[in-house]
């Protein structure tokens, strides 16, 4: 009995209270707006959540290390611009485009990490500066007029389904599973939690703090690039404004998932839940008849309430 209760508690702790919030929100949304219950809409939400979800996975790693990555929006935009201009609508160019985008993301992330870990620049300042630099680069690269198009074969990934489930969602969940294994099954994962919990203590215990931090930022931009590629597959077109919406929603998804911005606390399944929560909220406010202003107010208020409720719940837990 006691053992199973402990196990249940552990599962709940890992999943995070956010999943309770997701279920609660979905129930309320379905009562007010019954179409939310259609299976098609559930999959539609999962499809749209995939982009944010993948990006938030990367944000989660950095937040866990005690930092924040505000350059993800710029990475998404740059990925979209570079991928479409390399592919130019040809299937043969998919692999080169993906390789270039992931390579770029790795370099950007390593630079972010070096600025934070080696030069000691505040993460918020370093990554926001990088974000401006990336957006500027996209602008210079395109001259304001982006050309190119996604390859037709990508449509199967961006808009296709496998057994009814969107392919983008399956990719998201696969990436989440990989990251979860990295966090829970490897030395790197334990190092990351310890760096986020107390970097000085971790350093004294022999954890290579700089290397761990740089890797965390590289994982973040890598995930942002994956999200950018999925989004590109979804729309098939370049757009200089495509990444903007992820500047803060990625952080919001991680925080709603219960990760502490001070680092060291949080889990991958809860971050997945955070992305679902933010997307359900967006979808619900799109469907229900409210003005755009009210939409923003509802979204902001529900995010604040959920974070507060989560904190209360976490504090009460023995």
């Amino acid at each position: 009995m006691a053992a199973s209760r402990t196990a249940l508690r552990r599962v709940l702790a890992e999943l995070g209270a956010v999943w309770l919030a997701v279920i609660g929100l979905y129930a309320i949304a379905s009562i007010i707006s019954p179409p939310m219950l259609q299976l098609g809409q559930v999959f539609n939400i999962l499809q749209v959540a995939s982009f944010l979800g993948v990006i938030a996975l990367g944000q989660f790693v950095v937040v866990l290390s005690g930092g924040i990555d505000l350059s993800q929006a710029g990475v998404v935009t740059l990925t979209n611009i570079v991928a479409t201009s390399v592919m130019l609508g040809q299937d043969a160019m998919i692999l080169p485009a993906v390789a270039i985008c992931l390579g770029l993301a790795l370099v950007i992330g390593a630079l972010n990490g070096a600025m934070v870990a080696v030069l000691g620049i505040t993460p918020l300042v370093a990554t926001l500066g990088m974000n401006a630099l990336l957006f500027g680069s996209a602008l210079v690269f395109t001259g304001g007029a982006p050309r190119g198009a996604g390859a037709p074969a990508l449509d199967a990934i961006g808009n296709g389904t496998l057994g009814g489930v969107p392919v983008a969602t399956l990719i998201w969940l696969a990436l989440a599973a990989l990251l979860w294994a990295l966090m829970r099954q490897t030395v790197f994962g334990r190092w990351l939690y310890s760096v986020g919990g107390n970097a000085r203590a971790a350093h004294m215990m022999g954890v290579p703090v700089e290397r761990v931090t740089i890797t965390a930022y590289a994982l973040s931009t890598l995930m942002a690039a994956c999200g950018g590629l999925l989004l590109t597959a979804y729309v098939g077109n370049p757009s200089l404004g495509i990444g903007n919406q992820y500047l803060f929603t990625a952080v919001a998804a991680v925080v709603v998932g219960g990760a502490a911005l001070s680092g060291g606390i949080g889990s991958v399944p809860a971050t997945v839940g955070g992305a679902v929560f933010i997307t359900v909220l967006g979808s619900f406010t799109n469907i229900v008849r409210v003005s755009t202003g009210a939409q923003f107010v509802i979204q902001g208020a529900l995010i604040l309430i959920s974070v507060y409720a989560y904190r209360q719940f976490a504090r009460r837990r023995p």
């Binding site: 098609g40 539609n44 757009s239 799109n286 469907i287």
Partner: peptide, 20 residues
């Protein structure tokens, strides 16, 4: 609904409206 003059934003908003 506001769609930010962006194709991707419009597609997401429209998908929700289609469900509704």
């Amino acid at each position: 609904r506001d769609a930010h003059w962006e194709e991707d934003r419009a597609k997401v908003v429209m998908a929700d409206l289609i469900a509704a």
